[in-house]
Amino acid sequence: MDFLGYDYDTDLNDSNYDLNEPCMQQKNTNIELVVGPYVHSIICILGLVGNSLVIVTYAFYKRTKSMTDVYLLNVAVADLLFVASLPLIVYNELSSWSMGPVACKLLRGSYSMNLYGGMLLLACVGTDRYVAIVQARRSFRLRSLRYSRLICGIVWSAALLLSLPTFYFYHWYEPSHKMYAFVNESNRTAELPHYVCEFWFTDNSTALRTKVAVPGTQLAVGFFLPLLVMVPCYGAIVVTLMKARNFQRHKAVRVVLAVVMVFVVCHLPYNVTLLYETVRMFQLYSCDEIDVLKAAKTLTQTIAYLHCCLNPVLYAFAGVKFRNHFRSIVMDLWCLGKRYIAPRRFSRVTSMIYVSARRSVDGSGENGSSFTM
C-alpha cells in the first residue's frame, strides 16, 4: 500500500507466468495492523474535523473574498475528500476488496485526483502569498476572484488528467496467488476467494511504462513541483517580512517557516522511499529487503497523511480573522445547544451571550488576514 495504492509487485495477470510463492512480509504486516486501524483512524478524524470546519467557515461565516480564500477552500475540499476515501481503502487493503469493481476505480481514482489537486493548490497558495506580500503593488491586478477560480479549474483538470491511468488501469480481480484457510470439519485447507483492487495489465510493455510513469509523475508533480514553487516564494516572503517594520513580522516569519518545514518533514521521507524503489524497480530483491521496503513505505506514507490534518492549522486557523470566525462557530453551536436543552431557563441569557459574542468576534478581526502573513 502506498500513496496512490500502487503495488509495484503486482503481477501482469498473464496466464503464461510461472508464479513463485509470494513473500510473507511479516514486518510490514505487523506495522499495517497497527497503523491501518488506529493511526489512520486518528488521521481521518482530525482531517475530517479540521477541513470540515474550514469549509463551514467559508460557507456560512467568512465567504470567499480573495484569491487566498478560494485556494484555501479548495485545499480543504481536496483534503476532506482525501481523508474520507482513506478508511475505505485501508479497510479493503487489510482484507479482501469487497466493494466491487466500480468502487475500486472510483475510490482509487478520486484518491489520486485529490492528492494531486491538494499538492498543486498548495503551490498556488505559495505563489499567491508571494504576489500579495513581495509584489504588493501588482497584487490588486493579479489577485482577482476570476483568476483564482480559473486557476482552480485548471488545477482540478490537471489532477484529473494525471489520475487517468489510475482510473483506467485499476481493476477488481482475484490474483494468481490464492488464499487458504483451515476448515475444522475436514481438517484440510480450503481455498477462499480473495479479491484485490490493484493495477492490472494485459502486456509487458504497458506494465513497464506505467510502473515507471505513475511513480515518476507522483514524484515530479506531487512533491518536487510544489517544493520548487514553495521554497523560493516563501524564501522571498521571509526576506520581505524581515525588512518590514511591523511588530507581528516575527510571528508571520514563524508561520512561513512552519509551512515549509511541515511540508518537507511530512512528504520528504515518503518520496525518498518512493524514489529509491522506482530507481531499483527492475532489480531483484530478497524477501527480507521487500519486507523492509514495504514497512518503510507504510510508515513514511502515514507521516505524509498527517499533512491533511495540519493544513487547516497552518493555512487557515493561523490567521487572526479566521480564528475569530471559528470562535463565532463555537459560540453559535453552544448557544444553539443551550437553546434546545433549556429553552425557557436560558433563553434570555443565551440571546444576550449570542449577541455580545457575535459583536466581539466579528468586530475584532475585520482588519485581519485569512493568513497570518
Rank of each mutant, 00 (worst) to 15 (best):
S364E: 10
F167C: 09
L73H: 00
L46I: 08
T302C: 11
S176E: 06
L86T: 03
E289A: 08
D18E: 11
I45L: 09
S98V: 04
S41C: 08
A342P: 04
E289P: 03
N324T: 12
S148Q: 00
P22Q: 01
Y58W: 06
S163A: 09
S205I: 10
F167W: 08
L120A: 12
T278Y: 09
V49R: 09
G337V: 05
N28T: 00
G117H: 12
L80Q: 02
L4Q: 15
V355I: 11
R209G: 09
K294C: 04
M113N: 13
V256H: 06
C152W: 00
H325I: 03
Y38G: 03
H40S: 10
V272M: 12
V39P: 05
D291R: 00
S364G: 13
A220Q: 09
R137G: 15
L293W: 05
N324K: 13
L299I: 07
L107M: 14
A244K: 09
N28S: 09
D288I: 00
G109L: 07
R129F: 07
R143V: 06
F60K: 15
R348P: 02
L150H: 01
K62W: 05
A84C: 05
V49N: 10
L4F: 15
V330H: 02
R359K: 14
C309S: 14
Y116A: 15
F317H: 03
C287L: 02
S96H: 01
V56M: 12
H171Y: 08
E174Y: 03
M281Q: 15
N30Y: 00
A123P: 15
V196K: 10
V155K: 00
D362T: 14
G368P: 14
V39G: 03
C335K: 06
V35K: 01
S176T: 06
T202Y: 08
C335H: 06
D18Y: 10
L48C: 13
A220G: 13
I237D: 07
K65T: 08
T278V: 14
D11A: 14
V231N: 03
